[in-house]
Amino acid sequence: MINSYDLNNEIQFLAKSEIRLKIISELEKNPKTVKELVNTTNITYSSISSNLVKLEERNHVTKKKNKYYLKPLSKIYYRNLMDFKMSVDLITSFDDFWGRHNIDQLTLDSIQNINDLKDSKLIKTTPLDIYKTHNTIKEKMIESKSLKAIFPYLHPEYPQLIENILKNNGHVEIILPRNMFSKMILEINEDIRKPATAKGNLKVYATSKELNLYLTLCDETMSLGLFKNDGSFDQNRLLISSSEKSQKWANNLFTSIKEKM
């Protein structure tokens, strides 16, 4: 069986020529004459005009008084193509983060919107700083007023970090494996934990299902960690971002994993 997805000719027609893509990207900003296109792109007059003819034939551009206009639908096609380009660039540039790692727990929605992570940085440990990933997160957690997190493994410092946020009346939501509940949550000072739970400031979702994703969402930063294909958590790589989109992305992912439990 082959599925019904098929690249149509128009996608291939546009993607095939860098010159056409460049022309379209210029016309997307505003209509231009051939001469203006030559000046902004450094492509020769003959290449520009022959490609404009092809684009006109296929109904992507129209000519009015010497100026070429990109058709509204072609504008959308182009933006979608660039959106795809961005996602391929993103996947490629963080190749060693995704590659040989388990991504089963990423939702379809989060993969389709992977571009929201485009301002991310990949934090890697080095032989001189083997705790770099942990320390980066720790720093964010100390500064943060609230926390949403999926912790698939236990770090001995987490109970204290959570306690600090709760002390300042912050909100904490945590998804963790059931067998970690006592070591993580019961380690938090009872005098802080109990009132926080009663007030709804501390919400814990313990699951017996497998968690193969590490996610934290602090006030201004989200971070994502993955398991390797051999089943062990990769402590050496962490994707981290402070953009608004990435936080929304992390929040959506957190919510849908929470709902599945």
């Binding site: 997805y5 690249l7 795809f84 996602s87 391929v88 996947i91 490629t92 190749d95 995704w98 590659g99 040989r100 790692h101 388990n102 991504i103 379809l108 993969i111 389709q112 992977i114």
Partner: peptide
Amino acid sequence: TSNGFLLATNM
């Protein structure tokens, strides 16, 4: 691979 799957989903 994971990369292949991410790419295919976006394609």
